[in-house]
Design a binder for these strands. Structure first.
Length: 738
DNA sequence: CGGAACTTGCTTTTT
DNA sequence: GCAAGTTCCG
C-alpha cells in the first residue's frame, strides 16, 4: 500500500496524525481531498480502524460523491466509511430517532417554496401586513434563526418587530410539525436538539462514529459547529479541513470564525498547513493572491508553486454580453484547436441569470456544454406537481403538497372549498388531509363540493393501492395519466406543453434508473434523495466532453485548464448587495479568489460596457478586483478600461473609444449605441430588408430577408466578400449598421 | 369555477 | 425579461 507515496511533508503529517483534534489549513489546490482520502485509508489500514467508525461530512453532494469515489478507488469495493453532506447525515440520524422529538420517521423535507406556502398561511393567521412583513423576509429570518441554533423560544423579544418574528417562527414551526415536515434548517437544528435533549441517542452515535472528518470547515454555521462538537464527543478524534480564504457561504450563516478560532476551541489541536499549490501557474496564483490579500479577516499566508509562470491572465472588455459570450466561444474553439479538451473548460458567473446568454452562444457556436445547478430539475412546476402526489401518498399529513394537488389538474374543487376545509383543519388543529376526509364524508361541505372532494379522495386511494403493487416509475406514470395531468399538458399550446411533458418523462426515467440502482428502492427513499440531492446527476451523459457552466459558488473544489470568469463588473461581481457592507465585500473577494484559483493554465477575466439587467441596459465599472491584479500579470491590464480591440466593431469610427473614458456615462459617444441597438431586444426598430450592415468576419453586406422573431430572428445577408448570401441568427451575428 | 389578461417584483450565491 | 401571482370576465 503506497499510502504515503507522493505526499509532501505536511500532507504526510496530516495523514499520519492519530487521535485528538486536527486542523488542516489547506490552500486552494494544495491537495486537500487527497489528504482526507489518504488519511481515511491510513486510519483503516495502518491503525486498524473499522470503516464504519469513520464519518466524513461535506457541504455539497458533489464533494461527497467525489470523495466517495476516490475512497472506493483507493480501498476497493469493501466496506466504506459514511461520506455524506451535513444535511443527508442529519436526515439519516433523524429518520432513526426523530420519534423522540414527536415527529414521524417518514417526515417530509420541505424546500424553500414549500416553506413559503406554509409561511403565507402563518402570516394570514397572525394577520400580518404583507408589506411590512414580506413572506420572503420572514423566511430568511427564520432560516437565520435556525442557522444560529435558535428555537422560537430563543428569539429575544427585544423589539415589537422581533417579537412578531418570534410569533411567526413559532406558528411556522407548529405547522411544520403538524405536516410532519422539516425544512433544511430543521435537519441540522433538530439533530442538535435531539442530541442535546436525548443524550442516550447521542451516545449511540458516539459509540458508532469514532472518527469525524469535516471538509470545508470554513463554511460551517453555528448549528453545524455545535453538531460537530457534539459528534466529536470527549474523544475529539476530529479532523477539520478548510481554508479561510475560501469561505463563501456567509450569507447562509457560515461563520468564518469557526475556522479562525478552532485553535481556541480545541486547545490541544494539531495544526497542519498545506501551502504548496499543485494546480495553477505562478501567474494565476499570484493574481489570485493579490485579490484576496486585501482582506483583513484572514490568516496571513501565501501559497507557492513549482509550476511554471505560464501565460498572462487575460482581461478583456466587450461591448455587451452577447459579444462576451461570443468571445468565450471563440476562445474555446482556439483552445480546442490547440489540442485542448472540452471537459477542461469552465465558464463561471456570479448569478444564474447570466447563464442564458452563454448558453445561447454555445448553441449557436455548436460548443457542447452542460450546466451545473441553475433551475433545478425537481423544482420545476410540473415535476413538483407530480412529486406532490407521491409525497402525499408517503405522508398524508403533508398539507402543502396536498393543497397543491387537490385541484391540479382542475377537478372543480375551488378556492372556497379548499378554504373551508383549511379553516376546519385549523380549528381542530388537525392536518388538512383529515379535514378533507371530513369534507368528503361529513356534513362540512355543500353536496356538489362534497362529491368532488370524495371523488378526489377516491382517486388518491386508488393510487395508494397501486403504490403497493407497482414499482415507483410505473406508479408515477399512472398518476401522470390517470390524474388527467398528461391530458391537460397535451391540451396546452405545443410550445408550452411539450417541454413539460418531456420533463415528466425524464422524471419517470430517473425513477427507472433509481430502481435499477443499488440500495433502497422505496418511495420514501426516492423522495429524500430528491429533497437533498435536488438535481439530476447528468453523469450518465456518457462522459461526452462538454464545457462546464456554473456559478462561482458551485465552482469551489473543482479545477479546469481553461477558465472564464464573466461579468466582472461592479454591482454584478462584486454583487450590488455587497457594495455597502465591508464583510460582504470581503466575501466577494474570496469568491473571486476561489474562481481564479480554479484555473490551471489559462484564465480569462471578462466584462462588458453595457449589460441588460432586469431587461434594462446598465453600464457598470469594471470589477474592482481587476485593478488589484498587478499589471505585469495581466494581458490587457495596462489598458484596463479599454475595449477589446479586435472585436470592437466601432473602434475604427472613433479612436476615442480606446481611451479610459468609456465607462463614464456622460462620455459615452452615441456611436457606440449602434452596435447595441443592433442586438435585437424585441425585434423592434433595429433592422429592415435592404439595410446595409457590417459583420465582423464577412464585412459589409445587405439584408435580403428577415425570418422569425425575437430570439430566433434570422436574417439572410448578401455579403460582398462572399459574393453570396449567408443566413445568420441576428442575436449572434453582431451586425453593425454600415 | 376556470382561464385569459394583466401586474408585479425579482436575483446573489445552496442544502 | 420573465415567471409567478392577481384580477377580471365568461
Amino acid at each position: 500500500m503506497k499510502l504515503l507515496h507522493n505526499l509532501n511533508p505536511p500532507q504526510k503529517e496530516a495523514v499520519q496524525h492519530g487521535e485528538g483534534p486536527l486542523l488542516v489549513l489547506a490552500g486552494a489546490g494544495s491537495g486537500k481531498t487527497r489528504v482526507i482520502v489518504h488519511r481515511i485509508a491510513y486510519l483503516i489500514h495502518e491503525r486498524g480502524v473499522p470503516p464504519w467508525q469513520i464519518l466524513a461530512v461535506t457541504f455539497t453532494n458533489k464533494a461527497a460523491g467525489e470523495m466517495r469515489e476516490r475512497i472506493r478507488h483507493m480501498l476497493g469495493d469493501g466496506e466504506t466509511p459514511l461520506v455524506s453532506t451535513f444535511h443527508s447525515t442529519c436526515a439519516r440520524f433523524l429518520r432513526n430517532d426523530i420519534k423522540s422529538l414527536g415527529y414521524d420517521p417518514n417526515f417530509a423535507i420541505y424546500d424553500d417554496k414549500d416553506c413559503e406556502r406554509l409561511l403565507k398561511d402563518c402570516s394570514a393567521e397572525l394577520n400580518l401586513d404583507e408589506k411590512r412583513y414580506p413572506v420572503k423576509l420572514l423566511g430568511s429570518s427564520i432560516d437565520e434563526f435556525k442557522n444560529q441554533g435558535m428555537t422560537p423560544f430563543d428569539v429575544p423579544a427585544d423589539s415589537p418587530y422581533q417579537a412578531t418574528l418570534a410569533r411567526v417562527y413559532r406558528c411556522y414551526q407548529e405547522r411544520l410539525k403538524r405536516c410532519n415536515a422539516v425544512d433544511f434548517g430543521d435537519l441540522l437544528l433538530l439533530t442538535v436538539q435531539l442530541f442535546e435533549e436525548h443524550p442516550e441517542v447521542l451516545e449511540k452515535y458516539l459509540k458508532r462514529y469514532r472518527w469525524i472528518m469535516v471538509d470545508e470547515y470554513q463554511d460551517t454555521n453555528p448549528v453545524q459547529y455545535r453538531l460537530v462538537q457534539l459528534l466529536a464527543g470527549e474523544r475529539q478524534n476530529l479532523c477539520v479541513v478548510g481554508d479561510d480564504d475560501q469561505s463563501i457561504y456567509g450569507w447562509r450563516g457560515a461563520d468564518i470564525r469557526n475556522i479562525l478560532e478552532f485553535e481556541k476551541d480545541f486547545p490541544n489541536v494539531k495544526v497542519v498547513k498545506l501551502e504548496q499549490n499543485y494546480r495553477s501557474t505562478k501567474n494565476i496564483l499570484d493574481g489570485a493572491w493579490h485579490v484576496v490579500q486585501k482582506n483583513r479577516g484572514r490568516k496571513p499566508k501565501r501559497l507557492w508553486t513549482d509550476n511554471p509562470e505560464g501565460e498572462s491572465i487575460v482581461y478583456r472588455t466587450l461591448p455587451n454580453e452577447w459579444e462576451e459570450a461570443r468571445l468565450v466561444c471563440r476562445e474555446i474553439e482556439r483552445f480546442l484547436s490547440e489540442g485542448g479538451d472540452l471537459s477542461e473548460v469552465a465558464v463561471f458567473y456570479r448569478t444564474n441569470a447570466q447563464s442564458r446568454v452563454i448558453e445561447d452562444a454555445m448553441v449557436a457556436a455548436s460548443v457542447p456544454y452542460h450546466m451545473v445547478g441553475g433551475v433545478r430539475f425537481y423544482a420545476r412546476l410540473e415535476v413538483k406537481d407530480i412529486l406532490a402526489y407521491l409525497k402525499v401518498l408517503d405522508n398524508p399529513a403533508d398539507d402543502v403538497s396536498l393543497k397543491r394537488i387537490i385541484n391540479t389538474p382542475p377537478r372543480g374543487i375551488g378556492n372556497t372549498t379548499v378554504q373551508r376545509i383549511a379553516e376546519f383543519a385549523n380549528e381542530k388543529g388537525i392536518p388538512f388531509h383529515d379535514a378533507m376526509l371530513e369534507g368528503a364524508y361529513g356534513p362540512l361541505l355543500p353536496a356538489a363540493a362534497k362529491g368532488k372532494v370524495a371523488a378526489f379522495v377516491n382517486e388518491m386511494e386508488g393510487y395508494k393501492a397501486l403504490s403497493e403493487k407497482l414499482p415507483l416509475s410505473e406508479l408515477t406514470a399512472a398518476v401522470i395519466n390517470d390524474s388527467g395531468y398528461y391530458a391537460r399538458l397535451k391540451s396546452l399550446p405545443r410550445d408550452e406543453g411539450q417541454d413539460r411533458i418531456e420533463n415528466l418523462q425524464e422524471l419517470v426515467t430517473a425513477m427507472q434508473v433509481y430502481e435499477t440502482g443499488p440500495g433502497e428502492k422505496g418511495l420514501a427513499d426516492f423522495l429524500e434523495q430528491v429533497a437533498l440531492v435536488s438535481d439530476l446527476e447528468h453523469e450518465g451523459d456518457g462522459k461526452k466532453a462538454s464545457a462546464t457552466l456554473m456559478t462561482l459558488h458551485s465552482a469551489k473544489g473543482l479545477e479546469f485548464q481553461l477558465v472564464f470568469m464573466i461579468g466582472m463588473e461592479e454591482k454584478l461581481f462584486p454583487h450590488a448587495r455587497a457594495l455597502e457592507n465591508p464583510e460582504q465585500m470581503e466575501e466577494e473577494r474570496r469568491l473571486c479568489y476561489v474562481g481564479m484559483t480554479r484555473a490551471k493554465k489559462r484564465l480569462f477575466l471578462l466584462n462588458v460596457r453595457r449589460r441588460h439587467i432586469f431587461g434594462q441596459e446598465q453600464m457598470n465599472a469594471p470589477a474592482r478586483f481587476i485593478a488589484d491584479i498587478p499589471k505585469e500579470l495581466l494581458d490587457g491590464g495596462d489598458l484596463w478600461q479599454r475595449s477589446e480591440p479586435s472585436h470592437n466593431f466601432s473602434s475604427s469610427s472613433s479612436s476615442s473609444h480606446n481611451l479610459a473614458s468609456l465607462f463614464e456615462d456622460e462620455m459615452e459617444p452615441e456611436v457606440a449605441d449602434n452596435e447595441v441597438r443592433m442586438v435585437p431586444e424585441d425585434g423592434e426598430d433595429g433592422i429592415w430588408v435592404g439595410m446595409k450592415v457590417r459583420h465582423a468576419q464577412f464585412g459589409p453586406g445587405t439584408i435580403r430577408k428577415i425570418e422569425g422573431e425575437g430570439d430566433n430572428q434570422k436574417v439572410i445577408v448578401w455579403f460582398n466578400s462572399l459574393g453570396g448570401p449567408k443566413k445568420l441568427l441576428v442575436r449572434f451575428a453582431g451586425l453593425e449598421r454600415a
